[in-house]
């Protein structure tokens, strides 16, 4: 990231990401909160594109913006949260939360001070990513090097799907018919 323009874009993205995330958590209207989250995800996708990770950017939009947020909206619709909710249970502990946040901030500043980027894993150098394409390299690594973790995640998701089916299925007693 050399040159002035990428830096400016990065600063803008950083500010926009923080601002929209704050708007997401402070918004009283559930649908507006989801909308701000959509704006946040789009900025995140642009950030991925700036880091030459175009595949991640596309997946970010397809999976998070396109599917997960639509499901969020669906749920918000279903419980019909039109009126503003005021729950004080979570806001009375704000001094403690502030303390934790400041401590985390200090910790991350300390961590960033001695930060140096990790060396490329295996043959995934920056030049090769630009030459071969992000999607191809990622796919190859996923299905050769990390195939076990890939399968494990697949099984985990399958368990989640089955769990959802079991939870939502009505339990039918014997003799009630199918």
């Amino acid at each position: 990231m050399e040159g002035l323009l990428p830096k400016l874009v990065f600063v803008y993205l950083g500010i926009a990401l923080v601002a929209t995330s704050l708007l997401v958590v402070t918004n009283k209207n559930a649908v507006h909160a989801v909308l701000w989250m959509l704006v946040m995800f789009l900025h995140q996708a642009v950030l991925f594109i700036m880091l030459d990770a175009e595949f991640l950017a596309a997946v970010q939009i397809i999976v998070y913006a396109g599917a997960v947020l639509v499901l969020f909206l669906f749920v918000v619709y279903m419980i019909n949260l039109r009126t503003e909710l005021r729950i004080n249970n979570f806001t009375v502990v704000w001094p403690g939360a502030l303390l934790v946040s400041v401590a985390l901030l200090l910790l991350s500043v300390q961590a960033i001070k001695t930060f140096k980027p990790a060396p490329p894993v295996g043959d995934m150098t920056t030049e090769k990513i630009i030459k071969v394409g992000h999607a191809k390299l990622l796919g190859k690594a996923l299905f050769t090097e990390h195939v076990l973790s890939f399968e494990a995640v697949g099984v985990l998701l399958l368990v989640a799907v089955l769990g959802a089916v079991v939870l939502t299925r009505r339990i039918r007693l014997k003799g009630e018919g199918v």
Binding site: V31, L35, L38, E54, F55, A58, V59, I61, I62, A65, G66, A67, L69, V70, L73, Y77, G133, H134, A135
Partner: peptide, 24 residues
């Protein structure tokens, strides 16, 4: 772009937001 197909898929999934938000 290298991921043209994904861009089209991403945009078609975003277009549903217009419909959903209009309904709400």
């Amino acid at each position: 772009v290298n991921i043209g197909l994904l861009v089209v898929l991403a945009m078609s999934s975003l277009s549903s937001f217009g419909v959903i938000l209009a309904g709400w």
